[in-house]
Measured scan of single mutants.
Amino acid sequence: GSMEQGFLPKGWEVRHAPNGRPFFIDHNTKTTTWEDPRLKIPA
């Protein structure tokens, strides 16, 4: 929902695949990933 959306880094969006699995869109680089960007520790 909109709650989890608010925690994503700037430029990211979460969508759900037809099977219900969430995936993440990085509008900054125009890419998608199954990995939650929030789980990655910034270098």
Score class of each variant (00 low, 15 high):
32 T>M: 15
24 F>E: 05
42 P>Q: 12
29 T>E: 05
27 H>Q: 06
6 G>W: 09
10 K>S: 14
18 P>E: 10
34 W>T: 05
3 M>H: 11
14 V>T: 05
9 P>I: 04
36 D>Q: 00
17 A>Q: 06
4 E>F: 11
39 L>D: 08
5 Q>D: 11
9 P>N: 05
7 F>E: 15
12 W>R: 02
15 R>F: 07
39 L>I: 13
20 G>V: 00
41 I>A: 13
26 D>Q: 01
42 P>T: 11
28 N>A: 07
32 T>P: 04
24 F>S: 00
32 T>V: 15
26 D>M: 01
22 P>C: 15
15 R>M: 07
4 E>M: 14
13 E>M: 00
25 I>N: 04
22 P>N: 07
18 P>A: 11
26 D>G: 00
14 V>H: 05
38 R>D: 03
40 K>H: 14
17 A>F: 05
20 G>D: 06
11 G>S: 02
11 G>K: 01
16 H>A: 07
1 G>D: 13
41 I>V: 13
40 K>G: 10
10 K>H: 11
2 S>E: 11
43 A>Q: 11
26 D>A: 01
16 H>I: 15
1 G>Q: 12
3 M>K: 14
24 F>M: 00
7 F>L: 15
1 G>R: 11
34 W>P: 04
9 P>G: 03
21 R>G: 06
25 I>P: 06
10 K>I: 09
43 A>S: 12
24 F>W: 12
9 P>R: 02
32 T>Y: 11
21 R>H: 09
3 M>I: 13
16 H>L: 15
30 K>F: 05
12 W>Q: 03
35 E>N: 09
34 W>Y: 08
41 I>Q: 13
25 I>W: 06
17 A>K: 04
43 A>D: 11
2 S>V: 11
30 K>I: 04
39 L>H: 09
25 I>H: 06
13 E>A: 01
9 P>S: 03
2 S>K: 12
26 D>I: 01
3 M>N: 11
3 M>C: 14
39 L>K: 10
18 P>W: 06
15 R>H: 08
7 F>Y: 12
24 F>P: 07
4 E>C: 15
42 P>L: 10
4 E>A: 14
4 E>K: 10
31 T>E: 06
25 I>L: 05
39 L>M: 11
17 A>M: 13
37 P>H: 01
36 D>H: 02
2 S>G: 14
6 G>N: 10
38 R>T: 05
7 F>R: 15
31 T>N: 06
41 I>L: 14
20 G>N: 04
38 R>K: 03
28 N>M: 07
6 G>V: 10
41 I>H: 13
43 A>L: 13
38 R>Q: 03
39 L>F: 09
37 P>Q: 01
41 I>T: 12
8 L>T: 01
12 W>P: 03
39 L>R: 07
1 G>A: 13
13 E>Y: 03
33 T>Q: 09
16 H>Y: 15
35 E>T: 08
36 D>S: 00
18 P>V: 08
26 D>N: 10
1 G>H: 11
14 V>I: 13
